[in-house]
Every structure is written in C-alpha cells, then in structure tokens.
Lab assay of single mutants.
Amino acid sequence: TYTYKLTDEEASRRAEDEWRNRGYDVRVRNNNGTWEVEVR
C-alpha cells in the first residue's frame, strides 16, 4: 500500500486516475487539507 500526501486536489485526482488505469485499487481522502491518495 502506497500513500501519497498532496496539497493539491487536482494532483490527487490525476494520481487517482493514473493508478486506477493501471488496475490498482485507489482511495482518496482529505485529511485536514492534505489529500491522501492510497494505492493498493
């Protein structure tokens, strides 16, 4: 499981799409203004 911490929502969406396209399960959540993109 990888977790990315990003401050930019758009960057988190791009990361989400990119990993999803590669067949990974992705979750995005906002934690106090930081976007966490979790990849498994």
Rank of each mutant, 00 (worst) to 15 (best):
Y24G: 01
R27C: 12
Y24R: 02
E18I: 13
E9S: 05
A15P: 02
Y4H: 05
L6T: 14
R22Q: 09
E9Y: 12
K5N: 10
E38G: 01
V37Q: 00
G33M: 03
N30G: 05
D17P: 00
D17V: 15
W35Y: 07
L6Q: 07
K5Y: 15
A11W: 06
N31H: 10
E9M: 07
D8A: 04
S12G: 09
W19R: 00
R27I: 15
R20P: 01
G33D: 05
V26W: 00
T7D: 14
R22K: 12
R29I: 14
G23D: 02
N30Q: 12
V39E: 01
V28W: 03
V28H: 03
T7E: 14
E10A: 13
E9W: 09
A15D: 06
E18L: 14
D17S: 14
R40P: 03
N32D: 10
R27M: 13
L6G: 07
R29T: 15
T1A: 11
N31Q: 08
R22T: 03
E18M: 14
Y4R: 00
A15M: 15
N21E: 11
N31Y: 10
V28M: 05
A15W: 11
E10T: 09
V37W: 01
G23N: 03
T1I: 13
D8V: 03
R14K: 12
Y4C: 05
T1Q: 09
E10P: 07
Y24P: 02
D8L: 04
R29P: 03
G33Q: 04
W35V: 01
D8H: 04
V28N: 03
W19P: 00
R13Q: 08
N30V: 10
R40K: 11
N21R: 14
R40N: 08
R29C: 06
Y4V: 08
N21P: 00
A15K: 11
E9V: 07
T34H: 10
A15Y: 11
D8P: 01
Y24S: 02
T3A: 05
V26D: 02
V37Y: 01
R29A: 08
R22V: 04
V39F: 03
E16Y: 13
E36C: 07
N21A: 14
W19M: 05
A15E: 07
R29H: 13
D25S: 10
T7L: 13
E16G: 10
G23Y: 01
W19I: 02
S12K: 05
D17Y: 13
E16L: 11
E18G: 06
T7Q: 14
Y24H: 04
V39T: 01
N30K: 10
R22I: 05
E38H: 08
R27K: 14
R20L: 08
A11L: 07
T1W: 15
V26P: 02
V26S: 00
